[in-house]
């Protein structure tokens, strides 16, 4: 396991995180610090606790013990307002594509002209320019997920969490999402993304958090974790073996 990092300014951290339901431990993470410049990918088998960890980091689930920190401070509403999350199944409002984006832009109290310009930028960024008036519910899976990412980006987050955003998508749609993620990362948005896909981790990750059974079994630079994993669980997962 990578040496534990001290909290850096702006760094997202976890201290003594413990979450259990009905007497069963779901997450036990003594310490974790996500402060690298590039995308962090959380990798691991089903039930490893990846999505739960993401929800704890975003403040959607309060742990039973321990805390999530941002820049050394306990995660608070101000921090949460600078985060956004995209879910495995995109949750789109039953409105048009433009109205889904406008919902977020209006909440930022932007002047109408700025809102309009920002909307055009976002639609172009997601390749949805011609679909602004279309019902969001009629989009294809890939388009719906792109809209969900655009809506999250409309918040101008410092951190963007993505929970297996491409798990149900074909290679073309996956590639489009990955390009959006990389562009957001290049603009300085901290990306924390859950995936099962080792190839995707290789394409996107700067660092990888490997999880199994509610524990972080390894955290390190992507190349090191993927090419020379330290933990037996990581080696088995990457080799395609069964990990329980």
């Amino acid at each position: 396991m990578r040496d534990l990092l001290p909290d850096m300014p702006g760094g997202l951290g976890v201290r003594d995180l413990w979450l259990a339901r009905k007497g069963k431990m779901l997450l036990d993470v003594p310490e974790l610090c996500l402060d690298g410049p590039g995308p962090t990918l959380i990798l691991g088998p089903n039930g490893a606790g990846k999505s739960l960890l993401l929800r704890c980091l975003h403040g959607l689930i309060a742990p039973d013990r321990g805390r999530v920190t941002q820049g050394g401070e306990p995660l608070n509403d101000t921090h949460k307002a600078r985060q956004a999350m995209v879910f495995q199944q995109p949750v789109l409002l039953r409105r048009s594509v433009a109205a889904n984006l406008d919902f977020v832009l209006r909440r930022q109290s932007l002047p109408r002209v700025t809102r309009k310009a920002r909307m055009a930028e976002l639609l172009a960024e997601g390749g949805l320019d011609g679909k602004a008036r279309q019902s969001a519910r009629s989009l294809s899976g890939g388009e719906a997920q792109r809209l969900a990412i655009l809506r999250a980006l409309a918040l101008e987050p410092e951190t963007l969490f993505l929970d297996e955003p491409t798990s149900a998508l074909d290679p073309g749609a996956t590639q489009a999402i990955e390009q959006m993620v990389l562009r957001a990362s290049a603009r300085g948005v901290r990306i924390v993304m859950v995936t099962h896909d080792i190839g995707q981790a290789r394409r996107l990750a700067a660092d990888i958090v490997m999880m199994q059974g509610g524990h972080v079994v390894e955290h390190g630079a992507a190349k090191q974790v993927l090419d020379a994993p330290n933990s037996p669980a990581s080696r088995r997962y990457l080799a395609g073996g069964l990990v329980t």
Binding site: A84, V104, L155
Partner: peptide, 20 residues
């Protein structure tokens, strides 16, 4: 049930979620 997490993630409070 469907919107809950997404609205919370977008910073919409429980009360503000009613009109939505």
């Amino acid at each position: 049930e469907e919107y809950s997490e997404q609205l919370r993630s977008l910073g919409v409070s429980r009360l503000a979620s009613v009109p939505v």
